[in-house]
């Protein structure tokens, strides 16, 4: 009974931790706008937390600059399993317009397995919610694998 409860509620209360890897803040304000009354992600249980230890889903924005690389990797490493990594906007997936610059350390997928990409140069909040919803389902599966 206890196991079933845990398995069922893993997807129902995904807590987000937002890492800004040098983004132009376009995606950052879009991510926060997801929690405002109009789109209200909280009804699905989303909540922004302050420390990676509390997080289930890590949302990365920005083209992972050289400076922020090891800080991002360190924070992601500190998130307890089962965890999901969601990249928001084009920058983390490919470096977008900043690709090839001396200070961009390349797409995030070079260092960490990215679970869900939400494309769009500032994707719409509905798209972000879809992405996060998909991430919660992946979380549930990861929980099952972890259990085995």
């Amino acid at each position: 009974m206890f196991k079933k409860l845990i398995a069922e509620s893993t997807g129902k209360s995904p807590w987000l931790f937002h890492i800004n890897a040098g983004s132009c803040n376009g995606c950052d304000i879009e991510l926060v706008s997801v929690l405002t009354p109009r789109y209200d992600a909280e009804r699905l249980g989303f909540k922004l937390t302050g420390s990676p230890r509390h997080a289930d889903i890590v949302v990365v924005t920005g083209p992972v600059t050289q400076q922020s690389l090891n800080r991002v990797l360190r924070s992601i490493e500190q998130v307890p399993d089962p965890k999901c990594i969601v990249t928001m906007g084009s920058c983390p997936q490919s470096g977008n317009v900043f690709r090839g610059s001396y200070s961009v350390a390349g797409p995030l997928s070079k260092y960490v397995h990215v679970d869900v990409d939400v494309a769009g140069c500032t994707p719409k909040p509905e798209a972000v919610i879809d992405g996060l919803y998909l991430a919660t389902q992946i979380l549930a599966e990861k929980r099952k694998e972890m259990k085995k």
Binding site: L5, S9, D81, P82
Partner: peptide, 8 residues
């Protein structure tokens, strides 16, 4: 219950 399921 989610927190109970997570790794400590």
């Amino acid at each position: 219950f989610k927190l109970c399921g997570k790794e400590t």
